[in-house]
Every structure is written in C-alpha cells, then in structure tokens.
Design a binder for these strands. Sequence first.
DNA 1: GTCCCGTGTG
DNA 2: CACACGGGAC
Length: 237
Amino acid sequence: MEALLSVWYGRHGRDLPWRTTRDPYAILVSEVMAQQTQVERVVPRWERWLERWPTADALAAASPGEVITEWQGLGYNRRALNLHRAAQHIAAHGWPDDLTELPGVGRYTADAVACFAFGRDVLPEDVNVRRVTDRTGATFSPAAAQALMDLGATVCLARIPRCGICPLAEGCPSRGRRYEPLRKQGPLEGSFRQRRAQALRAVVAGEQPSDEEAVTALARDGLVHVRDGLVSLPSAP
DNA sequence: GTCCCGTGTG
DNA sequence: CACACGGGAC
C-alpha cells in the first residue's frame, strides 16, 4: 500500500513550503497554524510570520499583543498565546527532550516536529493519518507521513470519502462507505465563541469592545488585560 | 445551517 | 470524559 501511496503523493501531494525545511521552529509554527486552518490559507501567513519572527528567540522577544495581532484570522486565539509561550520556553531553556512540555504542544504536534525537524522515526498521527490507517487496515512507515496527511485531507475525507480517486481503493475494506459526523456542534453564528473572537478583534483594532461577558472570558485566558474598565492587549511578556 | 481539527481544562 | 475554542469547508 505504501508504494501506491508514494506514487500518488508524487502526482497529487500538496506543495507546502514548510516541507522543504528542517528548522524545528519553522515546523512548529506551521503545525500550530495548520491544526485548525486549511493549509492553503496558512501558507502566506506562515511566510509573513517567519519574516517577522524568523527564530524562537525573535518570537519570544515580541509582546503577546503583537503576536495576537499577527495571528488574527488563523482561528483559536489561545493557540497564538501558547505558541508565544512555547517560544519563550525554547529561548530560555532550549528545545526540551519531551516536546509536550511546550504549551499547546500535545502528542501529535510533538511527533510532527520530532519526525519532520529532528528526523526521529515516529509517525505523527493526526486524524487524517488515523482515518487512512483505520479504513485501509494497512500500516505505514514514518516516511509516508506527508502522503498520509494529504490523502486524508483531500481524498479519504471524514464523512464522504472520495474512493473514486483514491490510490488505495482497490483492496480497501472500507471502500464506498460513508460515515456519521464524529461530533455534534451548534452554529457558530451568534455563539459565544464568535462573540469572543469579535471582542478580541475590536481590541486589536484599538476599540473598546461592548461585550463584557466576552471580555471576561478573554481576560481569563490572558488574551486581554482589563484595568480601570479599559481593555487592552497584553503588553508584558 | 453544521462539521472539522488538536489541545487544555473542568 | 465532555466540552471550549474560530472560521472556512462542506
């Protein structure tokens, strides 16, 4: 199966700039950004980010407010803060042996950095990789990691897989199957999550948000500071 | 109008 | 273990 996958990857693999670097900081940034945002959208933002903060030291020296501002539009603002804190940890103590010690870095991201940057022999398992391995029943080496992620993201989709264009369809025991949604979720429109994000965008724009409830939640996560009823981006490192 | 996605927290 | 977290994809 891995040979078929490799041929497909050569023709249909995504051309992502961080796949040509081994810089662990650059890879960490790409992984954190791409965890919740389509990779095509991430590419220009990743390039801008590395121009502005080319190293973990440079990012660590920025203020949290600058980092939050640069992050806008990449989703889940807490991740920006975690990435900043991770850079400060790296700047102060170097790269830890156990990468999950870094804030915002769990099993998947730790394995991705270990594999792609440090050349460790581990297969980072995101849900794309897990879907393909579960459905095909095949096993793959860490060399197939990028190909598995692309196949899972573009062909072996969560609910309605595109088996008609899948290089592994022949002999796949799950071929043609459809799947129920894994999570239940209400609409984003009008949700508290959206209000939070709107309130933070207002602060980034230099305005005072009117949504006090959202501000309280943002302050609890350290995304804003409130003093004398005035809301600002966090400036202290 | 609803789901996806990894991590942290209650 | 369930849930919060964003915004484009579907």
